[in-house]
Design a binder for these strands. Structure first.
Lengths: 205, 205, 205, 205
DNA sequence: CATGAATGAGTATTCATTCAT
DNA sequence: TATGAATGAATACTCATTCAT
């Protein structure tokens, strides 16, 4: 898991150039996909020379991995906070859904890179994404488990199955949305319906 | 296709060359991913010459598309049948879930190609997969809509959102399963839980 | 020179199939050039299977060589006859010019193959065409030499240079004509002018 | 082009990489023909990597086209100058002949590429060479026409036919020479004879 | 003789990565 | 640090030729 952890080379100088490259990479990866994106395109979009990218990243794969790691970490941090809040369980689940879709809505390109691009390299997917993905699932599963313990959710469902299902549902909704014309309003409405569907399905009687 | 043509065009050997190529492609695509797979690897796995592949497929893309199309068509045929049956709606949904997971359980490589590989090419995804995917969604959405009309399902949920969510949930469960060690029993149990979650979430009160 | 001479394989049977292949080859070579022509195209145009071509010719090169040899031999035979006739020298030269252009005019495709295609393979050109080309030049040069001896042509010009020049002039005129819209009338007029130019240039004072 | 740019973009080495590639290409094209020449052969002969060629040329075709264009432009510039001089018409025609043969005599390989190789691709010939070729013909035809107007040349010959004939004659002489052992003296003598033949043929009485 | 499915050697071109400046 | 010219390994696809029928 910590394979990549300490991340890419950096020194003391060149502060935001690294960020510019990442931002540019997210944009072109989202537009063209990982394999169809040329390193030179990222460089051009970032306004740096091709070689400069190799001062901040080991190689092209490293750029994608970094995007994924930092993007997921961002999500995870908020997710954990929400999951640990003292709001009612229903509310926490709703917020997670809205959050995930809502956060990504504001970063549509990042969403596409994370949900679509990462699957483009089986190696990357299995090596780097899977562990982080599991971590993500774990947070949600933990929330479900807590809800079950507290009597808010029915106890006969495997929390990890619920978590995977929820993640997949959101992923599919996002994908369809990203492939289509991507109207923010429709996404928000879909989020509400999805939340209602899962909460009703989870409710303890 | 030539499933039943016991008589090949030549000798007794090399009967279903096309099928052999497809089978081999599914195997190597699943193992290495679309982009990392060399045409020569497919040829070798199929026991034919590189050039032979081009007698049956336009190019490498065409091989992937064909796998996807024939795989989905297979699913769609069964799906439509189940959706149109006269069983209770609950039962129909359950069967769809079991069928989808069950069918792919028997063809793990195909599952991985369909769920993972196809996303590797944005072009292929948008051009070929999206329409078939929508068709798939439509069948499920149709079933949900019918259930709503008949009073079996609550009416306040958008059938297409439910369909997308269900598909995504199953996709994620399959993906986790395909990436992991893939124990059939666990997949079957996950199917039951998933069905229960969605049915409860859908139930009309 | 006799490298190819006894020509392509033949047996006793399959009489005109060989001719059909040659005729078809002339057509497609003229249209697409030697390198851009596929053996399968020749086969299709001739109405035979790809493999059949190899029953009559050693390989693709052999087809082009055969066309060239038989085409040139045809020309040479007539040329020699005209050169040896008892008409005035002026007349013989004129007839040669008209003949060469006129004959080819009736076989435009053959003309294009001989003048253009053969140059497409340096090897073929040097190995097979050059000798035949020299033979061709020799006939014309012989006629010029005779004319000089008989006092009809000026004696200060090298007959071989004249022959080469005449050949080149006709070749260029044909090439331009073949590349353009190819109006037979304009070709004939060009022939007259060309003849007049050369005869005047050759005349003894 | 960068003929005079004494300062290369880099070090002191590899100054005119583009020129080196062109020079190498002329050499190998002349030796092996266009189709039989591998891009890697050009690269090796030029002492650069295969990929470097694509930094300066669009593709293999582009290399041939460039050779032709720059070679012809060179000839055209001198030709136009001679054609527009105030020497007697006879002299101008003689000089054109001598120049054309002489210029190429110094660049035998270039001569072979221009006269032979270019015809190897029908597409290139028709698309790129034909227009330049016509321009070339026009200059000579213009000179003939002027000579006719001034009373120096007979008026009954189509200037364009004369120009084509002259070009073809020179081309054939060059071709024979390039294909043979290429003795400079014989080429020069051929030039004199050719000039005499055409001038006598053109003379007004 | 004829077929045409199958073969597999052969090659232009791309693009991630390097390194001299 | 930053550059971007240069590198050269890597690969999909074509097509002349063969040979089992």
């Amino acid at each position: 898991m910590a394979v990549h952890s300490t991340a890419s080379k950096r020194k003391g100088a060149a502060p935001e150039k690294r960020e510019r490259i990442l931002k540019a990479a997210i944009k072109v990866f989202a537009k063209n996909g990982f394999y169809a994106t040329r390193v030179s395109e990222i460089a051009k979009a970032a306004g740096v020379a091709d070689g400069t990218i190799y001062l901040y990243f080991k190689n092209k794969d490293d750029v994608l991995i970094t995007i994924f790691e930092e993007g997921i970490q961002q999500l995870l941090a908020i997710l954990r906070e929400v999951a640990a809040s003292d709001e009612p369980f229903d509310r926490r689940v709703s917020r997670i859904i809205e959050l995930q879709l809502g956060l990504l809505e504001e970063q549509r390109d990042l969403a596409e890179v994370i949900t679509v691009n990462l699957r483009q390299s089986s190696t990357l997917l299995k090596q780097y994404a899977a562990p982080l993905f599991m971590e993500y699932i774990d947070v949600i599963a933990g929330l479900v488990r807590d809800g079950q313990k507290q009597g808010a959710f029915r106890k006969d469902l495997n929390p990890r199955v619920v978590a995977r299902g929820l993640f997949g549902a959101l992923d599919a909704i996002l994908l369809t949305w990203a492939l289509g014309e991507a109207d923010p309003a429709s996404l928000r409405k879909a989020a509400t319906h999805c939340a209602s569907l899962f909460l009703e399905g989870l409710r303890a009687h």
